[in-house]
Design a protein around this nucleic acid. Structure first.
Lengths: 156, 156
DNA sequence: ACAGGCTTCATACTTTAGGGTGATTTTGCA
DNA sequence: TGCAAAATCACCCTAAAGTATGAAGCCTGT
């Protein structure tokens, strides 16, 4: 309640305080020539305090708030009863032909070596494709890739 | 663009300014006894600048940064088909409860370690279950197991 | 012609999966 | 109650999967 009041009226409060300080300084200046002893130190201290405050205010005002991103998982219901693959979802993944082929063979339970054999490429190539494909699907393992691809309707 | 430059080089800028101020102070100290007139005003100005800086530094350093939370919705693909598992096929496989549980988690793309965590058992236990389960399904790999189980209707 | 994506492959290294074996403890049920 | 099946775990070792990095050749569109 109090904090929210301060929050909503921060601007006004700050300006009000600034005004008060100003008036105080002016008043003090009138007395300047009376209290001549130690006036320098007092003045210096005052300035220090005031401008420290100003600095803090400036920093708080100007510093950009750090952004914190919260990822909320939003369910997307997909039915793949129709064995028509979801081309839309496929496009979004940005998957290349070869990567899709590898993914399909993965889904059939083939090992990387077997996939390499079927596609007439080296084991390393299959690994490269699979690594890329994992990135694009945002997964870490082939089993996850297959699961996600099926949920998305990329695979039947 | 400019603000991002300031952001990424904040440290450097702050140190640079600090250096400049230091040099200025030193230079000023040399002239202190010459320019005795107006030294008060100069001193005051200096203090103002320095303490403004101090205030900014204090605020930036000590004040906990305001966190601005950005909520990003991340789609999670879910298939909502109520599948009737093929109990008959399940019986024939002779799978135990635990083995089925492991199989289900495998199908979700979990690693053996993750499965172990979910089932509160050791990694070795999961391996034992998976090995048995592979035998019963007559497959060699987890990916094959998942594929076959789905085809058989054991898994949704 | 050149930038950029795709495909291909390599090397080296780490992590995870899987196979084989054995052992102990639960537990369901005859 | 006793026993077989199930569940648990350990150790050791090999195979496969995955990570990281670099690089070369090939298309494609600007």
């Amino acid at each position: 309640m109090i904090s929210s009041f301060i929050k909503t009226h921060k601007q006004s409060i700050v300006y009000g305080l600034a005004m008060a300080v100003m008036l105080f300084v002016l008043k003090w200046l009138e007395l300047k020539f009376i209290i001549i002893r130690h006036s320098f130190e007092i003045y210096a201290g005052l300035i220090a305090v005031i401008f420290t405050g100003l600095g803090i205010w400036l920093a708080l005002k100007l510093a950009r708030p750090k952004e914190k991103t919260i990822i909320v998982e939003k369910p997307v219901y997909v039915s793949h009863e129709n064995f028509i693959v979801n081309d839309e979802a496929l496009q979004q993944t940005n998957m290349s032909r070869r990567e899709l082929e590898v993914l399909e063979l993965m889904a059939e339970g083939l090992s990387n070596l077997e996939i390499a054999g079927k596609l007439f490429v080296s084991l390393n190539t299959v690994k490269t494709h699979s690594a890329r494909l994992f990135e694009k699907l945002d997964v870490k393992r082939r089993t996850q890739a297959v699961d996600k691809a099926k949920r998305m309707g990329i695979l039947k």
